[in-house]
Computed example of a mutant assay.
Amino acid sequence: MSVKSNTVNTVLGPVPPEELGVALVHEALLSVVPGAEHAFDVTIDRAEIFETLAAKLRDFRAHGGGTIVDSTGMFHGRDLRLYETLSRTTGVHIVASTGQGPQDMLGGYFLTPQTNPPTPWPAEKFADLFTKEVTEGMVVPRVERRGAAGLVATAATPTGMTATDESLFRGAARTALSTGVAVSLRYGSDAVHDLDVVLDEKLPAGRVVVGGLDREDAIAAGAPLEIARRGAYIALDHVGVADRPHIADAERAALVADLVRAGFGHRILLSSGATGVAKGHPGNDLPYSYVLTTFVPLLTEQGLSDEDVRRILVANPRDLLSVR
Rank of each mutant, 00 (worst) to 15 (best):
G73K: 10
M74V: 15
H76F: 14
G77I: 12
G77F: 12
R78V: 08
R78K: 15
D79A: 14
D79T: 14
L82D: 07
L82I: 02
S87C: 07
S87M: 11
T90V: 10
H93V: 04
T98E: 06
T98P: 08
Q100C: 12
P102V: 06
P102S: 08
Q103E: 15
D104C: 04
M105L: 14
M105G: 04
M105C: 04
L106K: 11
G108E: 15
G108F: 12
Q114W: 14
N116A: 14
P120M: 03
W121V: 03
A123G: 06
D128T: 09
D128A: 15
L129G: 06
L129N: 06
L129T: 14
K132R: 15
T135W: 03
T135R: 11
T135I: 11
E136P: 04
E136C: 09
V139H: 11
R142P: 00
G150R: 03
L151Y: 07
V152K: 04
A155D: 01
A156T: 12
T157I: 01
P158C: 04
G160W: 04
M161V: 15
F169I: 06
A173C: 05
A173Q: 07
T175Y: 08
L177H: 03
L177E: 06
S178T: 13
G180W: 05
V183W: 07
L185I: 12
R186Y: 09
S189H: 02
S189F: 01
S189W: 00
D190M: 05
V192T: 13
D196H: 05
D196T: 00
D200F: 02
D200P: 02
E201L: 02
K202E: 11
K202A: 05
K202V: 00
K202G: 00
A205H: 09
R207Q: 09
V208F: 03
V210L: 09
G212C: 04
G212R: 09
G212F: 01
D214F: 00
R215S: 14
E216K: 13
